[in-house]
């Protein structure tokens, strides 16, 4: 009898676990307006709201966690969480090790932000965040690449003269330029690299990818994704 009770209790516990499918989302929390830790200490930004919305549409229970950018792919593979939602651009190189959902932000412009209008972005020292498409681009551009673990430090490097310019997503850099009272400015043309921003998932999680893709398509179709982009990126944000 005791064993029977125990077995049924275990079974109920197991069933409880199985029915509530929990998906863990990981973000960096340092890349406004995509994702950041707000002053309450909670994850906020475009991806927070977007992530909660697609989870609702896909009928998944989602929990959030933060992870350092540099180890965000290895920790996905070792199963610490299930989805990367961290402003990660879809690239062929990353596509070899993880799988991407459909993009939820169009291929965006990257730009150089410098402290002077005549900054030499092709031959000088240019800062970028480590393991980003921008860092790869700078390395091939002929400039000297100066890498930092967080995006904030890449901008700080320009302010204190360590680098002549920072190369990053224009959406991330725009507030810095706007709020610097002219101390920082965009230099040169915008450069479009990458295939837009997508969710990163393990290659074996095909079922999860299908659910996420369906939710993203639905959000694109009814225009709610564009509304969300407008809310966080303003009029300059790219729409679908």
């Amino acid at each position: 009898m005791k064993k029977l009770l125990l077995a049924s209790a275990l079974l109920a516990f197991g069933a409880g676990l199985a029915s509530a499918e929990v998906v863990r989302l990981a973000t960096e929390g340092a890349y406004p307006p995509f994702n950041f830790i707000d002053d309450k200490g909670e994850i906020a930004g475009f991806e927070r709201e977007f992530g909660d919305e697609i989870c609702k549409r896909a009928a998944l229970e989602c929990t959030w966690t933060t992870n350092e950018w540099d180890s965000i792919i290895p920790n996905l593979q070792s199963g610490n969480y299930d989805v990367i939602i961290a402003g990660m651009s879809i690239t062929e190189e990353r596509g070899k090790i993880i799988t991407f959902s459909e993009n939820y932000y169009p291929p965006a412009a990257s730009a150089y932000l410098a402290a002077s209008a005549d900054a030499d972005v092709k031959g000088g020292v240019v800062s970028a965040q480590v393991s980003t498409i921008q860092a790869a681009y700078v390395a091939e551009s002929g400039a000297t690449l100066l890498e930092f673990p967080t995006p904030d430090e890449t901008v700080a490097a320009v302010r204190n003269g360590e680098a002549v310019a920072v190369f990053a997503d224009k959406d991330y850099l725009r507030p810095f330029a706007d709020e610097s009272n002219g101390a920082l400015m965009f230099v040169g043309d915008d450069i479009s690299i990458g295939g837009g921003v997508g969710l990163g998932m393990r290659q074996s999680d095909t079922e999860l990818k299908a659910k996420m893709d369906a939710a993203i398509q639905a959000m694109k179709a009814d225009g709610s994704l564009n509304t969300l982009i407008e809310k966080y990126f303003g009029a300059e944000g790219l729409k679908f």
Partner: peptide
């Protein structure tokens, strides 16, 4: 500790001290 994913005082000092744009409630320079 930060290498191990535990948010310690150095993590918070770096995170709180970084430039905060208008996206945050309390914007401030570096």
């Amino acid at each position: 500790l930060f290498l191990l994913g535990v948010k310690d005082i150095v993590y918070y000092a770096r995170e709180l001290g970084g430039t905060k744009t208008q996206a945050y409630e309390y914007p401030h320079p570096d």
